[in-house]
């Protein structure tokens, strides 16, 4: 029995490896100017993170009621790259998907009286709304949207140059999805 189980496990790992590598490839963009990596976190992962930091259950429930998309960016240009979340667009079937911004979360936390330390921690895990990324500077953080049943897209538009007059950059990720607890992890 043990041998059969081990074999099944090895088989599972063997067949899931290409899937993981494929997903990572789909969720990564890199050229000479820019590195972008997207992570799709499951409710279980989010729960583990916030429960581990003793967030009250209501807060964890509110966060896991949404869909988490975590993005890491690195500016590889020799100029300023502008992270401006209002220039990013989530969409599904050409229809825009709204994003839960900081004021939404502040209202939620007011309602459940989330303690200040936890508000602060949550705030630092969010992607900054605006950042003038310097050469070699990286930034990462979470974005939240309403749960989607199918695939959706994220288009990241960037201005460049200290006065935003430089070349415009755009990166598109299609086939994103709200990860469920049962989905294979990308890492």
């Amino acid at each position: 029995m043990n041998t059969i189980l081990r074999f099944a496990l090895l088989l599972g790992i063997f067949f899931s490896l290409p899937t993981i590598a494929e997903e990572k490839k789909k969720l990564t963009y890199e050229d000479k100017d820019l590195y972008v990596r997207v992570f799709l976190r499951s409710p279980e992962q989010i729960t583990a993170f916030y429960q581990g930091r003793e967030f009250k259950q209501q807060a964890v429930d509110q966060i896991t009621d949404t869909c988490n998309v975590t993005v890491i960016i690195k500016n590889k240009t020799l100029d300023v790259l502008w992270l401006e979340l209002d220039n990013w667009q989530f969409s599904q079937n050409q229809q825009p998907i709204h994003r839960y911004k900081r004021d939404y979360w502040a209202k939620q936390w007011d309602e459940i009286q989330l303690k200040q330390a936890h508000r602060s921690t949550f705030g630092w895990t969010l992607m900054p709304e605006v950042r003038d990324l310097r050469t070699d500077e990286g930034v990462g953080g979470s974005l939240y949207i309403p749960k989607q049943s199918g695939k959706f897209s994220l288009t990241l538009n960037f201005n460049t140059g200290s006065n935003k007059q430089g070349k415009k950059r755009s990166v598109n990720f299609n086939h994103l999805f709200c990860r469920k607890n049962t989905d294979v992890e990308s890492e």
Binding site: Q116, A117, S120, W124, P128, R131, E137, V139, G140
Partner: peptide, 15 residues
Amino acid sequence: DRDGLVTEVWQPRGL
């Protein structure tokens, strides 16, 4: 910085 408010004032560009 138990409540995180000093960090808010200093505004580091991330952690």
